[in-house]
Structure formats: C-alpha cells, structure tokens
Design a protein around this nucleic acid. Sequence first.
DNA 1: TTTT
DNA 2: TTTT
Lengths: 111, 111, 111, 111
Amino acid sequence: MINKVILVGRLVKDPELKYLEDGKAVTSITLAVNRNFKNQNGDYDTDFLNCTLWKKNAENTANYCRKGSVIGVTGRIQTRSYDNNDGQRVYVTEVIAEGVKFLSTKKEALV
Amino acid sequence: MINKVILVGRLVKDPELKYLEDGKAVTSITLAVNRNFKNQNGDYDTDFLNCTLWKKNAENTANYCRKGSVIGVTGRIQTRSYDNNDGQRVYVTEVIAEGVKFLSTKKEALV
Amino acid sequence: MINKVILVGRLVKDPELKYLEDGKAVTSITLAVNRNFKNQNGDYDTDFLNCTLWKKNAENTANYCRKGSVIGVTGRIQTRSYDNNDGQRVYVTEVIAEGVKFLSTKKEALV
Amino acid sequence: MINKVILVGRLVKDPELKYLEDGKAVTSITLAVNRNFKNQNGDYDTDFLNCTLWKKNAENTANYCRKGSVIGVTGRIQTRSYDNNDGQRVYVTEVIAEGVKFLSTKKEALV
DNA sequence: TTTT
DNA sequence: TTTT
C-alpha cells in the first residue's frame, strides 16, 4: 500500500540527539506547519507534527538545525500504542522521516 | 508551509456518515496501510490511520465503500487536542482528506 | 531540495524488461492516469506518464503486471536531453520510480 | 486515479506573467531542483522542471519571486503534445501547480 | 511541550 | 476500535 508524507515547517525547539543501546542515532522533532488558509476568526492555524529521524538524518539535524529552522521532511505516517502510568492505552501518530532537507536562511543549507 | 499526505489502504470497517448541525456531511474512516518492509520477526506491520472526509467525499465514501474496500486518500495531517473525562489533555493526529479515490475490485470504481 | 511524485494509474501496455550491459534490470512503462475533473467538453482527460523502474521493481513489474494493471508508483521527476537523428535537441521528462505497488484486481497483489 | 507532485527548488529566471484573452493570469516557471545524491562523478545533478501557475498563484509568484527564489510547488504532472514547425510531434510534460509556497530568505515569505 |  |  502507499503511505507518503511531505512537510515543510519550523522546528519548535532545538533538536535533542539520543543514541539507542545498539548505537543508532535518533532525534524527535516537532515541526510547526502553518496552514495556508484562514480559520473562522481570520487567522492561520498551525499544526504541530512530531517526526522521528534516524541515523545520519538525526545527526545532521541535531548538528545543523535550531529552534526556528525551516526543514523539509519526507517520510511516512506511523501509528503505535502503549499503556500509560494510569493503565490507559495511548495512541501515538508520528511521521517517520526518510529524508530531511534544511531550508533555512543560510544559503549553504539549501544545496 | 507544506503539508501533504498520500495514502492507499483498506477500510477497517464500514464508513459511518454523519451530518453536522449546519448540514455538512462528515465521515471518519480508519485505513489499514500495510508496510512495504518486514519487521524484525519477518512479517509486515500495518499502520491504522484515521482520516476525516467532508461533504461529497464523505457521502461518496459512505455510499460506495465497505469494510475492506481499497481507497486512496490525498490530504494533510492535522493535530488537535482536547481534555478527556479524567481531565487529561489528549492529543489527536489525523489526516484531513482533500481527495478520495476508490480503488477496489469493481472496475467502475477505478475511473 | 524536494522532488516527490505519487501516481496511481493503469499500464498502457505489457511492460518490457531489459538488462543493461552491467546486468541491471530496467523497465520503461507508461501509466494512463485519468484526471479527477472534467474538461470543457464534460469528459475526463487522461495523462500518459512515462516511468522508469530499476532492479527488483523492474523485474517484479514485468513479472506480475500486464496491460491494464493498476499500479502505484512513488518516485521523482527527472529531466534529460539528447540530440535526435535530425540533430535536434529533445527534452525528456520522466518519473524515476523508487517504489512500486501492484493494486490490480487479484487480492494477493494488494498485500 | 492519483497524480501528486511536491517540489522545492529555485527559480532559474524571473517569472513572466501573462494574461490570456479571457483574462486568466498564467506564469510558466522553471525550477532547478538539486538532487540529494551524487552521480558517478561525485557531484549533484539538478533537474529543471517546468511548472505552470494560474490565477493568484501566477500573480503572487510574479510579484514576490525572482531568479534564485526558493519555491515550493504542489500539483500534478500533465502531458500534452503539439506539432512543431517541422511537422514533428513534440511531447511536453509539465507540472501544473495547485499550490505555491515562497520559501526564500526574507522571513515574511515563510509565514 | 509549541515555530516565524 | 483494526483491513486482505
């Protein structure tokens, strides 16, 4: 089946790089993506989309991006669930990045 | 900014059509989208993705699709949050459909 | 930069598999993709989009698909140019497939 | 069927705005999109992709963008053919923009 | 938990 | 709450 996502948005905070026990790099980021159309009050809502980056994508993003950086992410939507402390099932939907593109001000980021 | 999603998957149950007070048609569906790669146990996981359809898209899907139907959805990811009965904030991520395509067996569905 | 294409359409003829001198498998297919909106005469135009598939994607498509098969292709748009026999420069735009999904009638194709 | 394209690239020259006899605004632009992977010589090729913009998208792009501006385009691939002066059939593939996003340096362009 |  |  097909599952493709393409996002361009801004980092809501500095990315934090972690390493799993097996040495794999991971970073979880949240992208603020402003909508292109106005709501009933006449202003633009924004969606806050969680993305998970792996390996080189994780390391590069942690190295080159900061809160406010504009980033393009291509990937897929993934769902998972877990039981929280209150014994309730929590459903999580996030974007798993397959590619990342740095689009911020600095010219070199745009190559 | 950019926020695009393209999915092809199967309906996990019959779609239920509702009408809001203002007369607008809505349908919430869940698409089962099998992944194209195997997990560590050697089988294919599937993601269950909630999509919201509006107006003609909602009505047509309710009329022409059933549990198991293969559907293509194009749209965007949206986030929203609400407080549940226990006073906890719940975060919801769903796909808002802009286009829907019926891809099931019956030839006429594929036009 | 970002360059993503997602198509679902029908094969206009049986795919022909070739092998390059280095042993790499290639298949060039044309997808007929019906538009979702009517032209001024009230009928649906269709776009005929050339796609190039490599390796396993090429071999599987040649093995499992025929004229009329419904196929999903994800990939990127590529441009190239060459000089034809009359010494004229010809510009070619085609889709390079990164993933292929068989969506035809037969149930097993849809896994 | 499904036909979706998402591009982020740079304008290769200033956009030229035209108006058809019926008053509709059109702009044809070419986006230079650098590939994310190296060719056999170790450098990055770039694809030059023709896009056609209509109405407000055409006017805004002509007003706010210049050669070198970074632009996001979402839309579909379209094919058409015509006979050139030498009586030869020429096939054209281009991207018809449905949405445009200005991503250049100037902060305000990124809202 | 939210960016310009 | 999960489809083939």
